[in-house]
């Protein structure tokens, strides 16, 4: 089966990419100015603890041994201790990752779906005012400065109107209430999610709209669209069942590519909304010189982006039979 070969190839490519990232990160952290020992060891530790950690991380060994230790530690899930939290890095990250995934998956999926839909409509009405407005709107929202947009949304909808909470992901009074059901808790998270999601959505749907629009315009020139029209199909059928599925393929690819960039924006979004996710943790770790936490956050983000790309590849194969068979 072709699909097996395709996926195997993609998985191998992803593994190779990951090893490259792993190595580059190692080099970056070792090449940074200063003594690696002082960077990896919390100054407030007792000398015995510090010695123990130095031995564990192999910091006095030659660099290639350090690399091997680093790789081994990664595969055994041992990322060291966070300076700030004084807890294993993995535990800290493990708590934050689901929050990030929740926010990002939902806003990316939403913006891709809306972008595909609006891009389709814009292309179908090419040259009409509707198309111009959509294109201009997409360009404006896409180029808006994210923290500014986030702050404006907070100011209007959370502060002035009071419709949504200003920060955080949960309201303590609901989560500490023993009577609150799962639905109430979920709704509470949803309520907190609206503004950060709206921010990410605004920034992203425009690019999907524009990609879909141009892809759709290309698709509409294809011979099979002429065939569909000659067959006497309704215009809506030609648009939705013949043109759109083909035109959406490049958008799917771009979702995979834009994920990496959206994580950057994610650090900003999470910081502005105090969303307890991994992007905010990363910013925090860097500013606090919490090296073990920063290193692990980078790795995890890379891992998530690669995994998302794999999901996109599988989705692509599902949507395009030319890859499946």
């Amino acid at each position: 089966m072709e699909i097996k070969r395709y996926l195997t190839r993609r998985i191998i490519q992803i593994l190779v990419s990951f090893f490259v990232i792993l190595t580059v990160l190692f080099l970056l952290f070792r090449l940074a100015p200063g003594d690696p020992v002082s960077r990896m060891i919390d100054p407030s530790m007792s000398p015995e603890d510090a010695e123990h950690l130095i031995a564990q991380l192999g910091l006095r060994e030659p660099i290639w041994r350090q690399y091997l230790v680093y790789v081994k530690n990664f595969f055994t899930g041992d990322f060291g201790y966070s300076f700030h939290y004084g807890r294993p890095v993995l535990k800290v990250i493990w708590e934050k990752l689901p929050n990030t995934l929740l926010l990002f998956t939902s806003s990316i999926i939403l913006s891709a779906l809306v972008g595909i839909f609006l891009g389709k409509i814009a292309a179908w009405n090419k040259g009409k005012p509707l198309d111009s407005w959509m294109t201009i709107g997409a360009l404006v929202t896409h180029t808006v400065f994210l923290p500014w947009l986030a702050l404006i949304l907070i100011w209007v909808f959370a502060y002035k109107l009071g419709w949504f909470p200003i920060t955080g992901i949960i309201s303590e009074e609901i989560w500490l209430d023993p009577d609150a059901g799962a639905l109430a808790k979920a709704l509470d998270v949803g309520h907190h999610m609206v503004l950060p999601m709206a921010t990410l959505f605004c920034i992203h749907f425009g690019s999907y709209l524009l990609i879909m629009r141009s892809s759709m315009l290309e698709t509409l020139k294809e011979d099979y669209i002429l065939t569909a029209r000659a067959k006497g199909l309704r215009e809506s059928v030609i648009r939705d069942r013949h043109a759109a599925p083909n035109a959406a393929l490049p958008v799917v690819t771009s979702v995979g590519l834009s994920l990496a960039f959206s994580i950057n924006g994610g650090a900003l979004t999470e910081t502005v909304f105090t969303w307890p996710g991994i992007g905010r943790e990363l910013v925090f770790a860097v500013s606090q010189n919490d090296y073990p936490l920063a290193q692990a956050s980078f790795l995890l983000i890379a891992l998530v982006v690669l995994a998302a790309n794999l999901v996109v590849d599988i989705l692509y194969a599902y949507l395009d039979p030319r890859i499946r068979y």
């Binding site: 294809e222 011979d223 099979y224 065939t227 569909a228 000659a230 013949h242 083909n246 039979p321």
Partner: peptide
Amino acid sequence: LRLLRWKKISMIFQAAMNALNPVK
């Protein structure tokens, strides 16, 4: 015209390769 197409007059296109939708 739409109802007439294919029901009464149909077409075999130039370049049949591209006349079929690749994802259907």
